[in-house]
Design a binder for these strands. Structure first.
Lengths: 237, 237
DNA sequence: GCAGGGTATATTGTATACAATTATACGAGG
DNA sequence: CCTCGTATAATTGTATACAATATACCCTGC
């Protein structure tokens, strides 16, 4: 938590450090650098045409974002997400997305409401056409709208952090089954509750939306994706 | 979010950067550096006897912790907490401490349970004696035990982040009234619910514990402490 | 053949030098 | 007296040099 939008000032794309940070985050989340892979300062620096200094500073930030793990005097390693992590994140998100939806019911602006309606309409359209990339994009955007609408920088940032963190997993499962349609239907219900001013209902629906998303993940191969880390805690309860 | 305990490997007290980071965090939270104060790299470096490099890296981390704000090419400034921030944090904490208590009911170890009981016993003792520092310390520790007992690195870290973030505020209010006693009574109830294996009750009690703590803050001068930032959003609802 | 140690090498940690940017001070012009 | 612009100083951004640490390999001795 605790960085909000302020971070974006310093991670601006105009400083070398900011560019390195964003590039590395992108590459880690997209899977270019795989789990437990070691990132070497000089190698990254040469690849991006900068010295070690901005690379090192970017590393420090990536570590606090949880994307890499720095072992003193040894190196920086890409962190993995365990199935247990994913489960925990969805438990937390279930509560916080609910809170977010409840707050958004009071605070949402006309523009945000309209974008949300449009988002759902478009998602239906692309679902019919089978445009998987757009569906994933719209799904992400729906949640971002919700986060922005709750009028809490802290909650918004916390949720965006978690959201981004599970992107690696979510993209895959959303694209491989019929969850897209169901997910969008749930989005519509949440939107309508917010529009009707029913904060209680919006909260409940958002809670359940996360639970459904997680259940779907488990059904559709979370184990295969993160199989190597499942042993410890990933399958209980 | 998203850094867990891994961070502590890199912020070890044996590297200069780790020492600078911890020292600065301590000084900011304790109030040595006040809101909006500018932190200069050379000044900090000279004071601690190190060069700018480790100071800069510590700055990057402090920024992601939300304690300072770095404006590119300008400087690093201690961030303030608005009353709205505090309110948001307690809303979020209410839910997450509840979740944490619920999980802890299943997962808590014998040692943790014992430390929790001892904590409450000791807090009562120091309350009788009027040892304000120890009371605050034990209050913090109670929550840390709870966080550790939930068996979720992610939830633990998220809650510790929020907890630390409001320390600046909480210390003051806890020390200025009778909240200490009431707080410890609530701790006892939570502990007993966990001990009895009643996860539902533990969750509800932890929810309410945070709400009570926040209400008490508002009653006892949150406005005075953060008066300058109240104007925007701090008093609605 | 194997264990232990030591040296070479690679990599990170820190300090310093240099470049770029921003803030400040002062003077010229109105 | 005020304003603007330029020069100068202060500060951050980046690169490089040097130090400390960890790793790998070979060499020696048993």
């Amino acid at each position: 938590m605790t960085n909000y939008d302020k971070k974006y000032d310093a991670n601006d794309k105009y400083s070398l450090r900011g560019r390195v940070f964003q590039k590395l985050r992108e590459d880690i989340l997209s899977g270019k650098y795989k789990e437990h892979e070691e990132l070497k300062e000089v190698a990254i620096g040469e690849e991006l045409g900068v010295s070690r200094t901005p690379v090192r500073e970017a590393f420090r930030q990536l570590e606090l974002e949880g994307l890499i793990r720095i072992v003193p005097n040894k190196g920086a390693y890409v962190t993995g997400i365990t199935a247990k992590d994913v489960k925990d994140i969805y438990m937390i998100r279930s509560l916080l997305e609910g809170l977010c939806a409840r707050l958004a019911t009071e605070k949402i602006s006309k523009e945000q409401m309209e974008e949300m309606e449009e988002n759902i309409y478009l998602a239906d359209f692309h679902e019919d056409k089978g445009h998987l990339d757009q569906i994933a994009e719209l799904d992400n955007r729906f949640h971002d709208i919700l986060y922005e609408a709750c009028d809490s920088k802290l909650l918004e940032h916390t949720l965006k952090d978690f959201h981004r963190y599970v992107l690696r997993v979510r993209q895959k499962t959303l694209a491989t089954n019929t969850r897209g349609r169901a997910s969008n239907d749930e989005h519509r219900q949440i939107m309508e509750a917010i529009k009707a001013g029913d904060a209680e209902l919006a909260e409940k629906l958002a809670n359940q939306h996360m639970i459904n998303a997680y259940d779907n993940m488990v059904k559709n191969g979370l184990k295969e994706i993160y199989g190597e880390n499942m042993d410890e805690n990933g399958r209980d309860e």
